[in-house]
Amino acid sequence: MHSVFSISRFGALLGCAVLGMVALLGSANAQPVRVKDLGKLQGWRENALVGTGIVTGLAGTGDSPSNRGARQALSNAMSQFNLNIAPEQIQSRNVAVVMVSASLSPFSREGDTLDITVASVGDARSLVGGSLMLTPLKAVNGRIYALAQGPLSVGGYRYDANGNVVQKNHPTVGSVPGGATVEVGVQAQVLSEHSRMTFVLSEPDYTTANRVADAINLRLGAGLAQARDASGIEVYVPEDQRRQVVSFVAKLESVTVEPDRRAKVVLNERTGTVVSGGDVRISKVAVSHGDIKVSIRNEVAASQPVFIGNAGDGVRTALVTNTRVDVDEQNAGTGFISGGTTVSDLVQSLARMKTPTRDIISILRAIKTAGALHAELIIQ
Rank of each mutant, 00 (worst) to 15 (best):
R243P: 03
T207C: 07
L191M: 11
S195W: 07
V235Q: 00
Q226F: 13
G179K: 12
G221C: 01
R196K: 09
Y236Q: 15
V237Q: 07
A230R: 04
E239N: 03
H194F: 12
T198Q: 05
G221D: 10
V200Y: 07
L220G: 11
T208H: 01
G179N: 12
F248Y: 04
H194Y: 10
V186M: 04
Q241L: 10
E203F: 09
T198I: 04
T207A: 06
T207G: 04
K251V: 15
G232V: 02
V249L: 10
V186C: 07
S231A: 15
A222L: 10
D229E: 12
K251F: 14
I233K: 00
S192V: 04
M197W: 01
S247I: 11
D240I: 08
R242V: 05
G179D: 15
L220N: 01
T198H: 13
N210Y: 11
T198V: 09
K251R: 15
A222C: 03
D214E: 13
R228V: 15
V200I: 04
V237K: 01
D240W: 01
L201I: 03
V184A: 05
L191E: 03
R196Q: 07
V249G: 12
S202F: 14
S192F: 05
Q244P: 15
Q226W: 09
D229A: 02
R243D: 15
N217R: 09
V200C: 01
V190N: 03
A209G: 12
A188L: 03
A213F: 13
V200K: 00
Y236L: 14
M197L: 09
A230V: 07
D214Y: 06
Y236I: 11
V245L: 15
H194A: 08
A213N: 12
I216C: 00
V235Y: 10
R242F: 00
V200T: 03
A250Q: 15
F248G: 06
R228F: 09
K251S: 15
Q187F: 08
A230Q: 00
A225F: 08
P238H: 01
D205R: 06
V246F: 08
H194G: 12
E239L: 02
H194Q: 15
G223K: 08
L201H: 13
E234N: 02
T208E: 00
E203A: 08
N210A: 13
V237S: 05
A225V: 11
V237E: 11
V190M: 06
V184K: 05
Y236R: 10
V246M: 07
G179L: 11
A230W: 03
N217C: 03
R243F: 15
R196C: 02
S195P: 00
R196F: 05
E203G: 09
K251H: 15
T207L: 09
V186Q: 07
D205E: 13
E239Y: 06
L201C: 13
A180R: 13
Q187M: 11
E183P: 00
V182T: 14
